[in-house]
């Protein structure tokens, strides 16, 4: 993993052996780009790149690509999230080229939440490709310089390609094989689901290291600070595939309500510090949902600031 495949700062940071830092911002439910820009500027200097979600939870929002362009024009490096739910292979390839035309250098390939969760529950879904096939598609376009249909691409996209992983997902016996499969498809970085159960995550990481997977991809641990004990309980009970240990809930419940948010940030910082020492962890993906203003504090206190020059 020496030569660069893109102009991605994230790629350079990871390949230089630094812990990478990404965060996330969701486009607005309207056409005013100021919101996205504001969120972006808030965290600009504290992260290497910012993921822009693609109609997350199937709620219709401003397009991920458009929001990425807004960030890019401000000098903030985006990670274009793309789900396979809403677009077929024509539209996906076309959006990849559109992103490349603005030199958006990173992409995260996902299948997307089912549309029944969102505001268009009666809509069709597409799923022409699945997330692994989307990874293959971008790699094919970049590395072979060809469309899926076989024709040459003029100025192929230079994009650093990622995928998501959930270290706690069911069925448990395929957690590692599934990661391996994504890597075989060409995922160069992985951003994980939010981690609260450190022991289980470390075990997953150990197996990934044992299988040599961390030699082939950069695994960024997903972190989401808890705002309150209510949020922790909600995450534990309502969000599929989320593992929130009782001790986290107890710790938040143990402080008065006013101080729970701060406690949540403290836990997040402690977790980052602890996981920084773990073999195979290549960085952190800090998803402070509608709480972007806390990202600088988390990054700083975790010892990840300033971001390295690369």
């Amino acid at each position: 993993m020496s030569e660069y495949v893109s102009n991605s700062r994230l790629e350079r940071v990871l390949k230089a052996g630094h812990l990478g830092v990404t965060s996330e911002c969701g486009p607005p439910r309207g056409s005013d780009a100021e919101e996205v820009k504001k969120k972006g500027l808030l965290i600009k200097d504290y992260v290497d790149a910012v993921n822009v979600t693609d109609n997350q939870t199937a709620m219709t929002r401003m397009s991920s690509l458009a929001a990425c362009i807004h960030l890019k024009l401000l000098g903030i490096e985006p990670v274009l999230q793309m789900v396979t739910r809403d677009r077929n292979r024509v539209a996906l390839q076309s959006d990849i080229l559109g992103a490349a035309s603005f030199d958006i250098p990173n992409m995260l390939c996902l299948s997307g939440d089912h549309q029944s969760f969102g505001d268009c529950a009666q809509g069709q879904n597409v799923h022409d490709l699945d997330s692994m096939q989307l990874v293959q598609t971008v790699r094919h376009m970049r590395d072979e310089g060809k469309f899926l249909g076989g024709d040459d691409i003029k100025r192929p996209p230079k994009i650093f390609v990622g995928a998501a992983a959930n270290p706690f997902a069911d069925p448990f016996e395929i957690r590692i094989p599934r990661l391996a499969k994504k890597i075989v498809c060409g995922a160069e970085f992985i951003q994980t689901q939010c981690i609260y159960n450190l022991d289980k995550f470390k075990e997953w990481m150990r197996r990934a290291v044992d299988r040599g997977l961390t030699e082939k991809t950069f695994i960024m641990a997903g972190m989401t600070p808890m705002k309150s004990v209510g949020m922790a309980k909600y995450m534990k009970n309502k969000v599929p595939g989320m593992d929130v240990p009782e001790e986290i809930i107890n710790r938040l419940a143990g402080v008065e309500k006013k101080k729970q948010a701060q406690e949540g940030i403290d836990i997040c910082v402690e977790h980052i510090q602890e996981l920084s020492e773990i073999k195979g962890v290549a960085g952190f993906h800090i998803m402070a949902i509608e709480w972007e203003e806390k990202v600088p504090e988390i990054v700083e206190r975790s010892g990840l600031f300033p971001r390295p020059e690369v």
Binding site: S111, G112, D130, P171, K181, G241
Partner: peptide
């Protein structure tokens, strides 16, 4: 989701 390389992240 007609996922051919599954499961997706939502399997619980």
């Amino acid at each position: 989701k007609r996922v051919l390389n599954g499961p997706c992240g939502g399997s619980t």
